[in-house]
Simulated assay, not measured.
Amino acid sequence: MSGAQQKVKVWDGFVRIFHWLLVLLFAGLWWTAENHEMERHGQLGYILVGLLVARILWGLWGSETARFSQFVRSPKAVIGYLKDTEAKPSVGHNPLGGWSVIVLLLLLLAQVVTGLFNSDDILFSGPLAHLVKGDLAEAIGEIHEIVFEVLLVLIAVHIIAIVVYRLRGKNLLIAMLTGWQRADAKITAPRIRSGLWGMVLAAVCIAASWWYFA
């Protein structure tokens, strides 16, 4: 670890709220499905659709550390990071963590999209379920369940990574709670946009999703 350290702002308010809302929504979606509260399950899903759309847009125009162009790196960069994590000090997502974010977003998108088309023909029919029939409808239902299981594995890996980094002296949890992180003094502080704009964007996207699907 480098000797000289500085405290830098790495996560804007929207990214942090998105992260913790995602945790609550995923838990709520699991609970409502397990307890056959399918109307509430669908409503939480509509909120998640809007939230994901807002995060994708924020990944194009938001804070530097939130942008896909900043943390989606080449396979060579990922391999280099795995070989020597101290080679290039950075803030925000490291090359491996950046790809884990992409995988998580893609899985969540697959989950909500299949949910919109999913139906059990008893308690719940997604708002787009009428567009698919027969084998395709059954396949979508199976994909919805499989993706959920994969998400559980990815979440477990994410938690393990947080613990490992904490044991190595890097508290990722505090950074996501406060937005601030200790970093090498040579690091240039990233450009952070006001999270308020992201929150307004999320509110608009969630309202649009609710209006269209609910």
Rank of each mutant, 00 (worst) to 15 (best):
M199C: 14
P75R: 00
V78D: 03
P190V: 02
F14I: 11
G59E: 01
L104K: 00
V153Y: 12
F213T: 01
E86T: 14
W61A: 11
K133Q: 13
G169T: 01
L24D: 05
Q5S: 13
A202G: 15
I155S: 04
D121Q: 12
I160S: 13
A161H: 12
V91A: 06
G195P: 06
V23E: 13
L123F: 14
I187F: 10
F117Q: 00
D120K: 06
G97S: 08
L123E: 07
W31K: 00
A208L: 11
V53C: 06
L177D: 04
E142N: 13
K9A: 03
K9H: 08
A208H: 12
I162Q: 08
L44C: 05
I174Y: 14
N35S: 10
A208Y: 05
V150A: 08
G50L: 02
L107R: 12
L48C: 15
L201P: 02
D84V: 01
L57A: 15
N35E: 15
S100N: 09
E64Y: 10
W197Q: 12
F14N: 02
A208D: 04
I143Q: 02
Q43A: 07
W197F: 13
R67P: 10
M199P: 12
A156D: 14
L172M: 15
T178V: 07
E34R: 04
V153M: 09
I102P: 01
Q111I: 10
L172F: 07
L105M: 12
L131P: 03
G45H: 02
G92H: 00
L154T: 10
L196H: 09
V157Q: 08
W211N: 01
W197E: 08
D135H: 04
V15N: 10
V15T: 14
V200E: 14
R16Y: 03
V10T: 11
I79F: 13
L177Q: 07
L151R: 00
A139T: 14
L106H: 13
W31S: 01
W58N: 02
D135C: 08
D121I: 07
A203K: 09
G92T: 06
G97I: 01
L82M: 05
T32H: 04
A185K: 04
D121C: 11
E86R: 14
K88Y: 15
D84T: 01
E149G: 12
K186S: 14
P127V: 02
A161W: 13
L108F: 06
D135R: 15
A175R: 00
L29F: 11
T178W: 02
G45D: 05
A185P: 02
F148H: 11
A189Q: 15
W61Y: 05
L116W: 13
G179E: 00
R191T: 15
V112N: 05
I102R: 00
V53H: 05
I122R: 05
W31I: 10
L96P: 11
L106F: 06
L173I: 04
A175Q: 03
T65S: 11
I160L: 14
Y165R: 04
S125L: 07
F213C: 07
V150S: 03
A175V: 14
G92N: 06
A66D: 01
M1W: 09
I146E: 09
N171C: 02
M199I: 09
V147L: 01
L196E: 12
L154S: 09
A185D: 05
F68S: 05
G198N: 02
A27S: 08
R191D: 05
I102A: 07
G134Q: 10
E138F: 08
G134S: 13
P127R: 10
S74N: 13
I102T: 04
V164K: 10
V150Q: 08
